[in-house]
């Protein structure tokens, strides 16, 4: 990746880009550039059948495990994946509108950039990408399609999003339960700050419905570091609650609570076979996407 490309993936730079489309394009290009350098550049295909090797077949498709069993050369036959469906589930609740600093993207902005980039990449390789936006309920939904116009529709929807309302992951889960009957790739972009304690179990339910689930857990650095010292009136971003506290007095307790919650989230995701990606919004986007896509390619291979 060129230096210019790296800079484009910097959230501080992206935050200065006016529109989502620009951010998505910049991110997608940067990510693709990064993927070309990866030794795991696979294809979005699925294994179909074996056939006996014949001269002219690519040696790299020889199934060496089958040769070990049958003492014959078999070549894997692949079939273009035409029915991969991906749901991009974006949390647009009030808490997602937070950013600890003006030179950063809000969590929602960061999530939209991630989702838009992935939509772009999916459609580019002819996968179907769909969108579900939720807060207290599912407010926007686009059924997955592999058409190029789908990217525009998704980006338009994401671009128009405004953070607001409470977080209710259950609404998104119920929506997907009804609409995503086929096995799908579900990517959730959320801060998971749902007052419903079942939030992690609900996400795990998606996995039980045979979906491949990835949770992009978005956190602003201010949420992780809690850089408050003075007396501060903390206001809820989803309701009317507030609390006054001296930052330095509650920091230790806050960080302990946050740390144990994050551990709990990671543990439950791990136990539920849900891929968990923690994302700091000051993190370069390629640092999030490239390892994710690389893992996807490895699992596909």
């Amino acid at each position: 990746m060129t230096e210019a490309g790296k800079r484009l993936l910097d959230p501080a730079v992206l935050a200065r880009l006016a529109g989502l489309r620009l951010r998505v394009r910049a991110t997608a290009e940067g990510v693709l550039s990064g993927l070309h350098r990866s030794p795991h550049h696979g294809q979005s295909v699925e294994f179909s059948e074996h056939k006996e090797y014949a001269p002219g077949d690519e040696l790299r498709h020889v199934d060496w495990k089958a040769y070990g069993k049958f003492d014959k050369y078999y070549v894997k036959r692949f079939e273009q994946e035409t029915n991969l469906r991906a749901w991009l589930v974006v949390d647009a609740s009030g808490s997602m509108g937070y950013r600890g600093s003006d030179d950063r993207l809000t969590k929602l902005g960061y999530a939209c950039t991630l989702a838009g980039t992935l939509a772009h990449l999916l459609v580019r390789q002819q996968d179907a990408a769909g969108l579900a936006v939720f807060s207290g309920k599912v407010t926007n939904a686009l059924t997955p399609r592999a058409e190029p116009s789908q990217v525009n529709a998704i980006l338009e929807t994401l671009e128009a999003l405004q953070a607001g309302g409470e977080t209710r992951v259950e609404a998104a889960v119920q929506f997907l339960a009804e609409r995503a009957r086929r096995r799908s790739l579900v990517m959730v972009f959320s801060d998971l700050l749902d007052r419903d304690e079942r939030v992690l179990r609900l996400v795990a339910d998606l996995r039980r419905r045979r979906h491949e689930v990835t949770v992009f857990h978005l956190l602003d650095p201010a949420e992780i570091d809690f850089p408050f010292d003075d007396p501060t009136l903390f206001l809820s971003m989803e309701d009317t609650r507030s609390v006054e506290a001296r930052g330095r007095d509650v920091r230790k307790g806050y960080l302990e609570l946050l740390g144990s919650w994050l551990d709990e989230v990671r543990r439950v995701c791990g136990e539920s076979d849900v891929e968990y990606v923690r994302v700091r919004t000051d993190q370069a986007l390629d640092e999030v996407l490239v390892p994710f896509l690389a893992r996807r390619e490895r699992s596909a291979a």
Partner: peptide, 26 residues
């Protein structure tokens, strides 16, 4: 004594719980 600065903050539950737990000691 300064007037507290109002700050919207997403993880309010953790702040409230931390304040509740440390309030007596503080």
């Amino acid at each position: 004594r300064r007037r507290p600065r109002s700050v919207p903050f997403p993880a309010l539950d953790f702040v409230m719980q931390a304040r509740r737990e440390t309030e007596r000691r503080l």
